[in-house]
């Protein structure tokens, strides 16, 4: 099957049910996307599939073959993604950093869909967990990124 990751087409021979996360990290060597819970609960593994946030740990690789997959490695090449990363840096959001690639992907997905989200829309979309408790910093960075 063909996987299009960060604009590059890879032809890979993988089990159909392999989680996309495995394919990205172990087969393609892109380790910026993290494994957290493996149950779609924490969001550390979030990537974009055709611009929408997807939890790659529960996504069978077969189901996204041929679609545009974006990982944290290429987020700076996206206009919205770059703005999010700049806001993250400005607010010094990460502490340990493990969940942050997923947080950035979720934030980028939201801003691509809703340019100026309300607080409620941010709360509904940003369900990624952070055990350092950087939620206030994330919210502040989101407000900055949303202002463009």
């Amino acid at each position: 099957m063909d996987l299009i990751v960060n604009g590059v087409r890879h032809t890979v021979a993988l089990e159909a049910e392999m989680p996309l996360l495995w394919a990205i990290r172990d087969e393609l060597g892109l380790t910026g996307t993290k494994y957290g819970c493996g149950l779609a609960q924490c969001g550390a593994c979030t990537v974009l599939v055709d611009g929408i946030a997807v939890r790659s740990c529960i996504t069978p690789v077969e189901s996204v073959a041929g679609q545009q997959i974006t990982t944290i490695e290429a987020i700076g090449e996206d206009a919205v993604g770059r703005r999010v990363v700049e806001a993250w840096v400005a607010h010094q959001v990460p502490q340990c950093g493990y969940c942050q690639s997923g947080q950035v992907m979720a934030a980028t997905s939201l801003l691509k869909q809703i340019a100026q989200p309300s607080e409620a829309e941010v709360a509904a979309a940003m369900t990624n967990l952070c055990r350092c408790g950087t939620y206030n910093a994330i919210a502040a960075a989101m407000r900055q990124a949303a202002q463009g």
């Binding site: 159909a16 779609a40 997807v54 529960i58 069978p60 077969e62």
Partner: peptide, 13 residues
């Protein structure tokens, strides 16, 4: 996240 807004799940997985 898993079952989709279309309610279709993902393949047979």
């Amino acid at each position: 996240t898993c079952h989709g807004a279309d309610g279709q799940g993902r393949g047979e997985w």
